[in-house]
């Protein structure tokens, strides 16, 4: 601010681009992981996997889980888990299908209702986690079962079955559940939108700082004037919202809402975040990392079919990737910390 000379010490080391600083970025591990996994399946899967069919198949998967992995990753950075997303996805699908399909209300009412369900579940999660000392893992497992039960009960009560059909109008369908070119699900673009918003929130806005502080040392953050409880509740509401959004997109795409079927999102979203360099104990992680982790996960998930491997091999690869990710997360963190002590 004052003089260029005073600016120098802070600037020289930050503006310069070097392999060293790139390697120390938290995303480095996930980028390497993605490249390795992609090349592996590109060799096995051949031209089809590298062409549009391959890209669309793994991007569709990535978009679905990716929208949820973003806020789940944010919660993990702040030191919390959200298991309840596995129940919010079907709950929002069923809500949307019941409101707009069964009762014939306008699509916007169904969408609004479904998103409200997600926000409400997130709010309840957040309130219980901040007001009691129960770990979020347990709180959100409990809430997951409660929401699952409510969803099933409601569907059976109103519709008498565990699936509710809904045929959206063409405009809603094209915005939320269509395949562009017959291959690329429109939710890929929604995912990009979510990425942009979350990137701004975590890395550009000042509030992002607070999210890291929550996971680093919540007590000190509170002393420094960070509204920790409010922030945590908001983060849980974000993940509820994102899970509800995916539920809506599913209903629009498949024109039917299933009471069960959200469970894979629980572990998949956490895995995407961890493969993307989010540290399980909180305090570190990045949006780019979570996106790369999601892409890696999706490539393995779909690459298996293109490579004509036994699907069980895919599970083994994902398991191994997860372990490798946790190990490299640790060593990259050590590298990042060593930066300060070894520089001089």
């Amino acid at each position: 601010m004052s003089s260029p000379a005073a600016n120098a010490p802070a600037d020289t080391a930050t503006s310069g681009f070097s392999i060293g600083s790139l390697i120390r970025r938290p995303e480095a591990g996930s980028l390497i992981g993605f490249v390795v996994v992609y090349i592996f399946f590109a060799i096995l899967g051949g031209a089809v996997f590298m062409g549009a069919p391959g890209w669309s198949s793994w991007l569709n998967i990535a978009a679905e889980v990716g929208i949820i992995a973003l806020p789940v990753g944010l919660l993990m950075i702040s030191g919390e888990f959200d298991i309840s997303v596995g129940a919010v996805v079907p709950a929002s699908s069923v809500t949307c299908a019941l409101l707009s399909g069964q009762f014939g209300l306008p699509a916007i009412v169904g969408i609004g209702g479904a998103l409200s369900v997600g926000l409400l579940v997130g709010f309840v999660n957040g309130m219980i986690v901040t007001r009691t000392s129960i770990p979020s893992l347990i709180v959100t497992i409990g809430i997951m079962f409660a929401v699952m039960g409510l969803t099933l009960g409601l569907a059976v009560l109103v519709k008498g079955s565990t699936s509710v059909g809904y045929v959206p109008d063409p405009l809603t369908k094209s915005l939320l559940g269509t395949f562009i070119g017959g291959m690329f699900n429109v939710s890929i673009f929604w995912w990009m939108g979510f990425i942009a918003v979350f990137f701004y929130f975590l890395h550009i806005s000042p509030i992002g700082n607070w999210v890291f502080a929550l996971g680093g040392d919540a007590e000190s953050a509170r002393n420094a004037g960070v509204p920790t409880a409010k922030l945590k509740v908001s983060l849980f509401m974000m993940s509820g919202f994102a899970a509800a959004f995916v539920g809506i997109a599913q209903v629009m795409t498949y024109q039917s809402a299933q009471v069960a079927g959200g469970q894979p999102f629980i572990f998949n979203s956490i895995m995407c975040a961890v493969i993307g360099g989010v540290i399980l104990t909180g305090g570190a992680g990045s949006i780019i990392g979570i996106v790369l982790g999601t892409m890696t996960f999706a490539v393995v998930n779909q690459g298996i079919f293109f490579a004509r491997l036994d699907p069980n091999v895919g599970s083994i690869i994902i398991g191994a990737l997860l372990l490798a990710a946790v190990l490299t997360n640790d060593s990259f963190r050590a590298l990042a910390l060593s930066y300060a002590t070894k520089k001089k």
Binding site: N209, F212, A213, A221, A224
Partner: peptide, 9 residues
């Protein structure tokens, strides 16, 4: 004692 600092920031 530890100054309310966040190690990974």
């Amino acid at each position: 004692q530890f100054g309310g600092t966040y190690p990974l920031m």
